[in-house]
Write a protein that binds this DNA or RNA. Structure first.
Lengths: 254, 254
DNA sequence: TCCGACGTTCTGCAATGTAAAACACGGACT
DNA sequence: AGTCCGTGTTTTACATTGCAGAACGTCGGA
């Protein structure tokens, strides 16, 4: 899935590392980057000035930063995704009605990427935002996607990304995960009992095409006090399922 | 401003061109990219597989696309900007109160970048979205920024980006622009009379630090029927100014 | 089965990325 | 002022490595 290039362009790989450093630190000086990557200053300088010429990097005084061109490209990509346009208004509505935090994500390279978030009046604060990338095995969102992907794809993803534990409730056992995914596919929705964020429970539903292909998923997150793990979850489930269905309809007939 | 690297890394420049092709076309095949850029197929192949290894590009069958990693990086950048966090709730409120389209942008490299948009009930539809990059001379947003930038910076920007006309009302004359910027700085708000989008008028206000440095600007866009160019603009001006002030306060004391 | 169109791999030569050193610049401290 | 650091930048010469072209593999249609 993550392909190993057999003739990788080494200088491009250096550039990627440099971008990564600038992504992690908010900004960095030339020397800092060179030191962190154990590269010669002149090398880093050549890379950074090339990036700067093409406006991927800006320089404030002596500090280099990634430019908002990344936000620009990201915006272009998101707007090309019809799922986003179809879902946005429905999610705003759902967030307002329930007061909860509502999230839309799609999958790519075995990861989920948050395309949109709508916050209701009582929405919890978590550190995901638009563009956040999540592993798929430990959230209602992700499990709703995995449950509706061909089993062979899921196996590849599990192999690639493994099953890292985010909390003590995260499913880290393959067999257990596969069982739950079967259940999710059958009943049409997923549940997350503090598997990614402590104190949070979520319900999630996939967005499917009429051929049954998963385009993404939506989820609703609330403090665990508001949603019993074993009790009555029907209210939230109905909400999320009907919103998902509205989105599916709009995707098909628009 | 846009710096000319004197030892540009040529292979990186090729990569940038390839990314640009993928940005313009939604997706492309290897051969198409090679043909468009007049590069050998093997060269393009090496670049694309390197990008793919680092998850900047994905391959659907034979089609290459930019990955959502760009959205991810863009999201990280946006969330690091305190202006965004401070402004978001205020803009939602303003959009709801006025029903109009409200936009937040910041400036970088002589361009404005949209950080957030909030749509009121009667909001007009225009083709900007989060991440969109705009020239600064032809919008209330941009002129509010330019008006509060040091004159020398403005001159550099005008030289770099020139004054392209978007509509017949766009200011394309330097002297005229400078006069208007003086006025904007003095009175504290900017007006856009169909200078960027036909049929649309906007008022904009800068977001300043207590030292008077521009962090960005906000604007309110309405159909021209709702806002006379020479008549009473005070209502919208008051709205935008007071929202801008709230944001400034929150930026200073939080 | 052959043929054509395509992506991928291979290979040798020339282009070019890189390390090290020299240079330029600015601030701090005498 | 003048000297020293510690920066970033430019230069240069060498070896790495990116690249064109050709060969190979693969798929589909005739």
């Amino acid at each position: 899935m993550t392909a190993p290039a057999n003739h990788p362009i080494k200088s491009l790989e250096k550039t990627v590392e440099i971008i990564d450093v600038l992504k992690r630190r908010r900004s960095a000086r030339l020397g800092e980057v060179a030191e962190e990557l154990e590269l010669n200053k002149s090398t880093v300088h050549n890379h950074l000035s090339t990036l700067r010429e093409h406006e991927y990097v800006v320089k404030d005084g002596e500090e280099y930063r990634l430019s908002l061109q990344f936000l620009h490209i990201g915006g272009v990509l998101r707007n090309e995704i019809d799922l986003y346009e179809a879902a946005k208004p429905k999610l705003d509505r759902l967030a307002e009605d329930t007061g909860a935090l509502v999230t839309l994500a799609t999958h790519e390279r075995g990861l989920g990427t948050v395309l949109y978030r709508a916050k209701g009046a009582d929405a919890v604060e978590i550190d995901t935002h638009v563009g956040s990338q999540l592993t798929l095995h430990n959230s209602a969102l992700g499990k709703a996607i995995l449950g509706n992907l061909p089993r062979s794809d899921v196996e590849t993803i599990v192999e690639e990304r493994e099953l890292p534990a985010a909390t003590e409730n995260t499913i880290t056992d393959g067999a257990e995960l596969y069982d739950e995914l079967d259940e999710i596919r059958e009943r049409g929705w997923a549940f997350d009992d503090e598997e990614n964020w402590r104190g949070l429970r979520c319900v999630g539903a996939p967005i499917l095409t009429d051929e049954g292909v998963v385009k993404g998923a939506i989820s609703l997150s609330v403090p665990k006090s508001q949603l019993a793990a074993d009790g009555d979850r029907q209210g939230y489930v109905d909400e999320i399922k009907s919103t998902a269905n509205l989105i599916e309809l709009r995707l098909t007939y628009a």
